[in-house]
Amino acid sequence: MENEELVRVLSGARHDWLNQLQLIKAHLALNRIEQAETVIEDIIVTAQNEAKISQLNAPDFASFFLTFNWYPHSYHLDFEVTGEQQTLASMDQVLVQLAADITGLFDEYAGSMIQNHVRVMMNLSDDEIQITFDYSGSINCEQQLHTAIRDLTMKPYMTLVQNEVTPYEAVATIRLDIKELNGG
């Protein structure tokens, strides 16, 4: 990693931590102990998910999610990793391309009237990876988004399990066949 890149990464991480610490400090100053505890619990859950995604041995995919909110987007993103921990090194580029494509669509079709949010849930098993992208907020052109998600997932190793789009929510669940991804 180049020094400039390392400084950028550390700067982004420091910025996130400072925001969280300032939020805790503000709650404590106002004697809102329960809210401070909730922020601390959220930090713990986020750190656990960051550790899980980092241990998948898919560095580009992990980097995509770990740094996503450091860049301008039409929404805030968080993620969760569940299931059997495994090595996804051979699938790194396929996973990051899928994530970039779906989140890119959300950026393209996001409305600006309300605060938008995306939750990505990744469930791992021996033979498949299931990823759910759950967008909540304002959506422009729902039918075009629905069609674009369908078209993105027309690959032999992908199954579009769910594709529901309304003016205020989009849920896309994609199942990836690990055997198919690894060449049979």
Rank of each mutant, 00 (worst) to 15 (best):
S63A: 13
V120M: 13
F64Y: 15
P59S: 05
R32F: 01
D126G: 06
T132V: 12
D127M: 05
I44S: 06
L152R: 11
L56R: 12
F79Q: 06
A89Q: 12
F65N: 05
Q143G: 03
Q93H: 09
L145P: 04
K52G: 02
A100V: 01
T153N: 14
S138H: 14
Q85M: 12
D151R: 07
L88I: 10
M122A: 05
Q48V: 14
I40T: 13
F65D: 04
P59K: 11
Y157G: 00
T67G: 05
A62K: 04
I33A: 04
V120Y: 01
V39G: 01
S63L: 10
A62Y: 07
V118H: 02
S74P: 00
A58V: 07
N31F: 11
G137I: 03
I43Y: 04
I40S: 09
A89C: 02
E50C: 15
E108P: 01
H146G: 00
R32I: 01
D126Y: 10
H76N: 12
M121S: 14
N116G: 06
D92Y: 11
Q48H: 11
V81F: 04
S63I: 00
F106Q: 06
N123I: 13
S125G: 06
I114R: 06
E128L: 03
D92E: 08
L124R: 08
Q35C: 06
D101Q: 14
L152H: 08
P156C: 07
T46C: 05
S136I: 13
S90M: 12
S74F: 00
V45I: 15
A51M: 10
F106I: 07
G137D: 03
S63D: 07
Y157T: 03
S138F: 06
D101E: 13
D60I: 02
M122H: 03
S136T: 14
Q130P: 04
T82M: 08
Q130A: 02
A110S: 15
Q85E: 12
T103M: 02
E37W: 03
Q85D: 11
S54R: 13
F61M: 08
A89L: 12
T103H: 03
E80L: 10
V96W: 03
I33V: 15
G83D: 03
I129A: 01
I53D: 07
N57W: 00
Y135H: 01
P72I: 01
T132R: 10
A58C: 02
L56Y: 11
N69D: 12
N31G: 02
G104Y: 02
D60L: 12
T159A: 08
K52Y: 09
T87I: 08
Y157W: 15
Y71G: 04
P72F: 02
Y135P: 00
V94K: 10
L152V: 05
D151H: 14
N69T: 06
F68E: 06
F106E: 05
Q162C: 07
T147F: 09
T153Y: 00
Q48P: 01
A51D: 08
V161H: 00
D101V: 01
M113R: 09
Q48L: 15
Y75V: 03
H76C: 04
F133Y: 15
S125T: 15
L77T: 15
T87Q: 10
D42A: 15
Q55S: 15
W70P: 00
E50M: 15
S138P: 03
S136K: 13
A110C: 08
L145M: 11
K52D: 09
T38P: 00
M158G: 01
L105F: 07
Q35L: 10
V39E: 13
T147R: 12
S112I: 06
S54D: 05
Q144L: 15
Q48F: 11
F65I: 12
H76K: 11
